[in-house]
């Protein structure tokens, strides 16, 4: 870890200003991802802006249009346990509880979870080439160990997966990410636009601008229907998804979003009206470019969908 300076802010705009003011500055929330990355010098922030005391961001409140606004600092544990979430957005509770461990969820925040970085082993090792960590150095995962990495949305430059479970449910629910800029301007970014694909710039992972600070994630009115989250992994807990499937079977039709297979939560709306699991899968995986190591993920996607169609909703 490199030495850094530290400050604590109490308002959202002050947070944005503090980070914008200093190159190399970063927000720190729960710290469960950033601290690990800093210890390994994958990220080397020079200044940390602790946002944990920004007032009002630890609450979940109803929105005028019947949805929910989830403050950026709401802990994953509290979000999963909230009775409105459990009742109306059960897929989100299920996804959250499938992630990490109890201890981590107690610290992890809503915004931090959206922004957690890939688990590619080469990204985590500064002795290896990695375009995401060091632009232009190459991608060690291509031709290397890629069993957990992405099969769709990848580029020549990077095949890393987005590891979040929570974000997959939020993508399914058409969440919006609310932010504030250093100048006080705000915007609401549809989650589909929030994460970007690697393309030629794998080090850019979201549309956030320098200093832009997340204040909340909003969910639209409840969808109703049956919610499910199936997470496939080698061990029963404390492991990232190899593949996950978030689904809602509701009055408005079916929705599917996938985790573990792409550089961002993966949802192909055009696939959802299809009448068969195979047809949905064909759309979802249309431009799949797996490696020999992770081709099995295509099979998993197909089988999860087939099971979903067969049984109504996976358990």
């Amino acid at each position: 870890m490199r030495a850094f300076t530290y400050e604590r802010v109490t308002t959202a705009q002050a947070a944005a200003q503090a980070v914008a003011a200093q190159p190399g500055a970063k927000f720190i929330a729960g710290g469960t991802n950033l601290l690990d990355l800093a210890k390994l010098e994958i990220e080397t922030p020079t200044h940390l802006v602790d946002v944990n005391r920004v007032a009002g961001l630890d609450r979940i409140v109803p929105t005028p249009d019947g949805g929910l606004r989830i403050g950026a600092l709401v802990r994953n544990t509290d979000l999963a346990a909230d009775h409105r979430v459990r009742t109306d957005y059960a897929v989100l509770t299920r996804a959250l509880l499938a992630g990490a461990s109890g201890q981590l969820r107690n610290k992890a925040t809503t915004a931090g979870n959206l922004l957690q970085r890939t688990r590619c082993v080469y990204f985590y090792d500064t002795s290896k080439p990695c375009n995401k960590r060091k632009p232009g150095s190459g991608c060690a995962a291509r031709g290397g160990y890629s069993r957990g990495l992405a099969v769709v949305g990848v580029s020549d430059q990077c095949i890393a997966q987005h590891p979040s479970d929570m974000a997959v449910a939020m993508r399914l629910l058409d969440a919006k990410v609310e932010t504030v800029m250093p100048d006080g301007a705000t915007r609401a970014i549809p989650i589909t636009d929030f994460h970007t694909l690697p393309g030629k710039t794998p080090w850019i992972e979201t549309v956030l601008r320098p200093g832009e600070f997340i204040t909340a994630v909003t969910l639209p009115r409840p969808l109703g229907g049956v919610h499910s989250y199936a997470k496939v992994r080698d061990r029963a807990s404390y492991a990232f998804a190899l593949v996950s499937l978030a689904a809602v079977d509701g009055p408005g039709g079916r929705r599917f979003a996938f985790g573990g297979i792409a550089p961002k939560p993966w949802r192909v709306e055009a696939a959802e009206p299809m009448g068969s699991a195979g047809a949905v899968a064909d759309h979802v995986l249309a431009e799949a470019a797996p490696t020999a190591d992770n081709r099995y993920k295509l099979t998993l996607v197909r089988r999860l969908l087939a099971d979903h169609f067969e049984t109504g909703a996976a358990a």
Binding site: Y124, D125, Y145, S237
Partner: peptide, 21 residues
Amino acid sequence: DERFGYFANHDLAEYQVPVHA
């Protein structure tokens, strides 16, 4: 990773051992 001659999964997240569950 035979290209580099090392064990690529060098932490407890990637070298998995059983957890309680």
